[in-house]
Design a binder for these strands. Structure first.
Length: 201
DNA sequence: ATAGCGATGAGCT
DNA sequence: GCTCATCGCTATA
C-alpha cells in the first residue's frame, strides 16, 4: 500500500519539473464511497504570473483564481466551455499561483464506477483521456475546488504501475491555448508515449 | 447589467 | 476537419 504524497511534494517550486514528475504516479479519488484510481499519463504546467496561458497571469486574482495562490497541495477545479470540469493541482509556495492540469490517466481501480459515470459500457482510451473525461470518470467537479490533496477524497501516491523510463516521456506544447501569444509554444506538456490513454499524440 | 468567450468533447463528413 | 453544445467567469459600463 503506497502512501499519499506529502504537502512538501506539492510545494516544490518548479512547476514544469513537477508536471513531468507526476507522469507515472497514481491518482486516487474516493467520492461517496466509490474508489477509482489510475496512473497519470498526461499533464500540462501553468505557471503563475509570467505565463500568459495561466489563469493567474500577472497576478490576476478573482473568485475563481484565488485558490491558486494557496500553498501547493490543493485542487483547482473549474468549468470549461460550460460543460467540462477541469482538475488541476496547485503547486509552489504561498502566493505563487502555479498549477498542473491533469489531462489523462490510465485506469487501475474502479473501472466499473468510471464506466457508470461516463455512461459507457466498454473500456476504451476515451474513458479517462482528455481533461474533461478524466475528471468526470473520477467524479471530480467544482465541489472539489480547494480540496486538500492530503485529504480523503482525492490524492496522489508514489507509484502507478510501471517503473517508467525517462525516455518514454514526451515533452511538447500545450493544447488549446492559442490565445497565449508566444507562450503557446512553451514545451510544458508531458505524456507517456507507451500508454494508449493520452488525449492527443 | 451584460456581452463575449473559453486549458473540451462528441458526432458527423 | 468542422460544428456546436452550454454556462460561469471576466471585463467593461
Amino acid at each position: 500500500m503506497s502512501q499519499k504524497l506529502p504537502l512538501s511534494y506539492y510545494q516544490q517550486t518548479d512547476v514544469v519539473h513537477l508536471a513531468k514528475d507526476l507522469i507515472g504516479k497514481k491518482i486516487v479519488s474516493n467520492i461517496n464511497g466509490k474508489l477509482t484510481s489510475g496512473m497519470i499519463t498526461e499533464t500540462e504546467a501553468y505557471r503563475g504570473y509570467d505565463d500568459k496561458a495561466c489563469h493567474a497571469h500577472l497576478g490576476r486574482f478573482t473568485d475563481r483564481t484565488k485558490i491558486m495562490y494557496e500553498p501547493g497541495g490543493v485542487a483547482y477545479v473549474y468549468l470549461c466551455y460550460g460543460i467540462h470540469h477541469l482538475f488541476n493541482i496547485i503547486t509552489n509556495t504561498n502566493g505563487n499561483a502555479d498549477a498542473i492540469l491533469v489531462r489523462a490517466v490510465e485506469p487501475i481501480d474502479g473501472i466499473k464506477v468510471m464506466l457508470d459515470r461516463r455512461n459507457k459500457s466498454q473500456l476504451d482510451k476515451t474513458l479517462t483521456s482528455g481533461p474533461g473525461n478524466f475528471s468526470k470518470a473520477f467524479g471530480l467537479h467544482k465541489s472539489h475546488y480547494g480540496a486538500h490533496l492530503t485529504g480523503d477524497e482525492v490524492w496522489i501516491e508514489e507509484d502507478g504501475l510501471a517503473r517508467l523510463r525517462e525516455s518514454d516521456i514526451i515533452t511538447t506544447t500545450r493544447i488549446g491555448i492559442d490565445y497565449a501569444g508566444e507562450d503557446k509554444d512553451l514545451p510544458w506538456r508531458f505524456y507517456l508515449s507507451t500508454s494508449q490513454f493520452v488525449s492527443k499524440r
